[in-house]
Design a protein around this nucleic acid. Structure first.
Lengths: 118, 118
DNA sequence: AATAGTAGTTACAAAATGGATAGTATTGTA
DNA sequence: TACAATACTATCCATTTTGTAACTACTATT
């Protein structure tokens, strides 16, 4: 199953790395929000509606993602103030992860449907 | 940021796929356990010690992973009964995801260390 | 009979996460 | 003045997740 040798040292490193990744983008919402933002910048209420997430949680998630350098927050000079959230260049480094998860989820769903079909 | 066009339809599909993936391997332990099992089959207590996870949680996680076809459980005919857990062929399809997360976590950690260094 | 090893399970507690509802602040409009 | 839009924040509560400690079941050994 391995392209690299997987001894107990590299295994420990791998576990740590995966934990680190989960710390940053784990949980129910962050990857979903990143996926939505791949579509382009969004305002607070747009994100809230598209992800079907309550403002309290959305606000918290966005703050954490901003702290980790994954999204930018821009206040715009509009009649009622609007705020735009967008992906940062750093978030591009997560592209591989998001794409791999997207592909896997899709093929897994197809597998389940096939299982049910027979 | 996109290799595929990312319109609102593909975006919804992508979100769904990512949710599906998180349903199966999300949470604090599953990906870590998969990583440990990449090292080879392990017994219950070995997994418990290596992952530093309590038997209650470990048991639950393993049951869920078995249900999803990601690990196999084999009872061995030994003096005190031992049980071996191993990856299934299906779990190989997660290789890309795990590797991408491993790589990202490692480069992220390096980035953080550099930030602190200056 | 008492003890030990392996693989769990049970009961309970603590912590993290998520959600619903309402409220604040600002500005503009009717 | 009242109401609406936007972006939150505050409060409270429910659910989920995680953890701890002790206990069971089976077998073998002393």
């Amino acid at each position: 199953m391995d392209s690299i040798v997987h001894n107990s040292v590299t295994c420990k490193k791998a576990r740590l790395a995966i934990r680190d990744t989960l710390d940053v983008i784990g949980g129910k919402w962050k990857m979903v929000l990143l996926t939505i933002l791949m579509d382009g910048k969004k305002r607070f209420l747009e994100l809230s509606r598209e992800a079907e997430i309550s403002p309290r949680i959305l606000s918290k998630e966005l703050q954490e993602m901003e702290l980790n350098g994954l999204v930018s927050r821009t206040v715009c000079n509009t009649k009622p103030v609007t705020v735009e959230y967008a992906l940062t260049p750093y978030s591009e480094t997560l592209k591989e992860v998001l794409e791999a998860m997207g592909r896997w989820g899709q093929q897994h769903r197809e597998r389940i449907i096939e299982e049910i079909a027979q």
